[in-house]
Nucleic acid binder design. Structure first.
Length: 421
RNA sequence: GGAAGCGUAGCCUAAUUGGUAAGGCAGCGGUCUUGAAAACCGCCGUCCGUAAGGACUUGUGAGUUCGAGUCUCCCCGCUUCCGCCA
């Protein structure tokens, strides 16, 4: 949520940065409602003041054994006016809140201005291009040959997009997850979290999935619980409605979760294999920071994700998303993409974002600044560290041997208990 | 699923038959002091207002009332017990 004061006092800047983000919404709609709201507040508060004064007098008179009927009569019309003004005020509040919850987070000034993904800026490339001297298999051919997964049966059980990992494929998946969790907790100082895989609508509102993107999620309607699209949701909501002691900053959590996405509207895109799924595994990194530190922490967060890919020896590049490609809640975001040498495509495996106080406002996540003073909203960040399906694609394609086997990357050998599949 | 109890500000705790939220701790500013402590004063939840000031706030929402922490109802959460169950 954007600070109403910022909209009021800095309308033009907010309007501009929303436009750069591709949001076509006239802030005057909100400003007019806000003005009307404040006008009514003044009127209704004056009336309430009158009523309070009279009530006090009634109490005094009654205590003294005097009659107060004429005073009580006075309140009748005042109360009627208050009631109707309060009702109007409630409506305005609802309207304003509805608009505010649907307004995207403006981009940070450092974000390059651009319309869509085609204008994104590559800011870093790492690793050596894999060149095959033999005919290489793509990840599906290799995986099926080695019996690592079974998409047909996964589809039978749940439908397309729900992968079934089998045998050493299942173990490889589990090894990757364990490796990433150990890496982030032991080397990068994150606290491990194992969160619920469902969340209620309030939690979904905090992180920004609701109210706008409900269609993208699975809903267990009977209990009004959503399947989480990312561990960002439960982990960010750990401190919902809380005050974080300032000396605990930065709070760093690493969480594995399965992620569920309906992918409504993307049918027919990337349907092949692991490129786009309804259920996938991901280790998510979440940070709560002091506002002064969040952009520094974003860089560190990105490094932590990159570190995983370097440990696995995979070629990657980092993208600085332009304003038009930023997600609803993000003020700034880096994508990290892996090179799939057979597909010959860049695959997004991580998004590292700073949400500034956008989520903290929605979830009321605060801290008391050093030296005292008013409670302030914390900054929240998160990044994938990383998602497994596309990582698996890059791994299988990169580490295949000439005779159609898979050479287990060194860091995964202890987890797999073998160096070849 | 059933029963009982509880929910007051960052934390802790009060509030007669309904009379308009008292205090303590922590924190911030100030007075005093060489400095600190103590003591004292102010601030210490949200909103409106340039300000003076005012309104709101006892988990949420509604109702009764001139007036609700207090009475009534819905809902939410927590605790304990019972039932069911991995």
């Amino acid at each position: 949520m954007i600070d109403m004061r910022l909209i009021r006092e800095n309308t033009r800047d907010v309007q501009t940065s929303l436009k750069q983000k591709g949001v076509d919404f006239d802030l005057n709609i909100i400003l007019n409602l806000d003005e009307e709201r404040r006008d009514i507040i003044q009127k209704v508060e004056a009336l309430k003041r009158q009523r309070n004064t009279i009530s006090k007098d009634v109490g005094i008179r009654k205590k003294a054994g005097q009659n107060a009927d004429n005073l009580i009569a006075e309140t009748t019309s005042i109360n009627e006016d208050i009631k109707s003004l309060d009702a109007k005020l409630g409506e305005l509040d609802d309207q304003i809140k509805t608009f505010m919850l649907q307004l995207a987070n403006p981009a940070h000034f450092s974000v390059p201005v651009g319309h869509d993904a085609s204008e994104n800026v590559v800011i870093k490339e790492w690793g050596k291009r894999k060149i095959f001297s033999h005919k290489a298999l793509d990840h599906l051919e290799l995986g099926e040959k080695l019996g690592l997964f079974d998409f047909q049966r996964g589809t039978k059980i749940a439908g397309p997009g729900f992968p079934l990992y089998t045998g050493l494929g299942a173990k490889l998946e589990r090894s990757i997850i364990n490796f990433m969790l150990d890496f982030h907790t032991e080397k990068h100082g994150y606290k491990e979290i194992f969160p619920p895989f469902v969340a209620n609508s309030k939690s979904m509102t905090t992180t920004g999935q609701l109210p706008k993107f409900g269609e993208d999620m699975y809903l267990a309607g009977k209990d009004e619980l959503y399947l989480i699209p990312t561990a960002e949701v439960p982990v960010t909501n750990i401190h919902q409605e809380e005050i974080i002691p300032v000396d605990e900053f930065p709070v760093k959590y690493a969480a594995y979760s399965a992620c569920f996405r309906r992918e409504a509207g993307s049918y027919g895109r990337d349907t092949k294999g692991f490129l786009r799924l309804h259920q996938f595994n991901k280790v998510e990194l979440v940070k709560f920071t002091h506002p002064d530190e969040s952009y520094n922490e974003l860089e560190l967060l990105r490094r932590d994700a990159e570190d995983i890919l370097e440990a696995l020896g995979l070629e990657y590049r980092v993208i600085d998303l332009v304003t038009g490609d930023l997600s609803f809640s993000a003020a700034k975001c880096y994508d990290i993409e892996l090179w799939a040498p057979v597909e010959e495509k860049w695959l997004e495996v991580s998004s590292c974002s700073n949400f500034e106080d956008f989520q903290a406002r929605r979830g009321n996540i605060r801290f008391r600044p050093n030296g005292g003073g008013k409670l302030q909203f914390a900054h929240t960040l998160n990044g994938s560290g990383v998602a497994t399906p596309r990582l698996l694609v890059a791994l299988l394609e990169t580490y295949q041997t000439e005779d159609g086997h898979f050479k287990v990357p060194e860091v995964l050998v202890p987890y797999m208990g073998r160096d070849l599949i």
